[in-house]
Design a protein around this nucleic acid. Structure first.
Length: 292
DNA sequence: AATTCGCCCTGTCGGC
DNA sequence: TGCCGACAGGGCGAAT
């Protein structure tokens, strides 16, 4: 599931390919994914450097008008970049689970819902088997007032410990730590994987009520979030099955996870068997001993 | 008014 | 082997 580190990885890797190129055509295979706006309004415009807010990827364009194409990759979204001379590969790689993942730049298939044709003959392909992703075409000037983006809190990357603590204390209600971390209006970008990882690193159980965290543990949580996200970006994202880089390669953070997907395995810190439960309607893995 | 629930979606996997 | 239900879950709108 693409969270902040995965989307940031995509942003960084498409960034060198876009600026200066024009968007000359679009093809929308799944109209329902376009939530707001009109793709035709984007054609003829030139790409500016891509941006990111939380899990949203923003592709600003300029020219006759200033527009931004906003993408949310949902659960299984993949944004790939096919250079003009790209060799299309329909080979698959068999993962240990038996799942077959496309290898390299793949040809368009029934899950490819948006194709952007660039002026140099290259293409951006948005593929999303589960179709939880969303596409928005917005005027750049008021893009932040669109409902989805206006609800977002500050980006979770680069938030300072003090600001983290201040916002955390301001969140109303008797909510547990995991619910708060997943709340995109608190901080934008944290999803299920990095919420669990952050809690483990901080030594805090996900079901702990937010109001029960003292100053010290709150500071540890802020640092743990920064560490988990930073490590995710360093490892170029977490690939279980669906997440791929724009060139079809994959991240390595799945090899560096402490708790997520490690239910029943020993805690890397204390050796206790990790326990899976449901918190905030999400599968949650934690160490019963060193997360209190 | 805060919180939970149901829904959207498809591929994968375990059980029988 | 094959069918089927359960599961994965981000975000929104409806219900509680």
């Amino acid at each position: 599931m693409p969270e902040l580190p995965e989307v940031e990885t995509v942003r960084r890797r498409i960034a060198p390919h876009l600026p200066g190129k024009q968007l000359i055509a679009t093809r929308l295979g799944a109209p329902k994914l376009l939530e707001i706006g009109d793709l035709d309004a984007l054609t003829g415009l030139a790409f500016l450097p891509p941006e990111r807010i939380g899990k949203y990827l923003l592709l600003p364009l300029c020219g006759a008008r200033e527009m931004t194409l906003v993408l949310h990759l949902g659960m299984t979204g993949q944004l790939t970049y096919a250079p003009a001379d790209a060799e299309v590969s329909d080979r698959f790689r068999r993962l240990p689970s038996g799942y077959q993942k496309p290898l390299g730049v793949h040809s368009e298939d029934r899950h490819t819902h948006l194709v952007l044709a660039l002026s140099d003959g290259s293409r951006l392909l948005f593929r999303d088997p589960r179709r939880f992703g969303r596409i928005l075409s917005l005027e750049t000037a008021d893009r932040l007032s669109t409902p989805r983006l206006s609800r977002l809190g500050p980006d979770a990357l680069g938030i300072g410990d003090k600001e983290f603590a201040r916002r955390f204390r301001d969140t109303q209600g008797r909510r547990n730590v995991k619910t708060i971390l997943l709340d995109q209006s608190f901080l934008a970008g944290i999803g299920n994987i990095y919420a669990d990882e952050s809690c483990h690193t901080a030594g805090i159980h996900p079901t702990t009520l937010g109001q029960d965290l003292g100053k010290l543990r709150l500071e540890r949580l802020a640092q743990a979030v920064a560490e988990a996200l930073g490590r995710g970006i360093q490892n170029a994202g977490t690939t279980f099955r669906d997440f791929v880089h724009p060139d079809g390669s994959h991240g390595s953070n799945q090899e560096d996870l402490r708790v997520y997907a490690r239910s029943g395995k020993p805690c890397l810190r204390c050796g206790t068997i990790l326990v899976k439960s449901v918190v905030a309607q999400r599968g949650t893995v934690a160490c019963p001993k060193c997360q209190k």
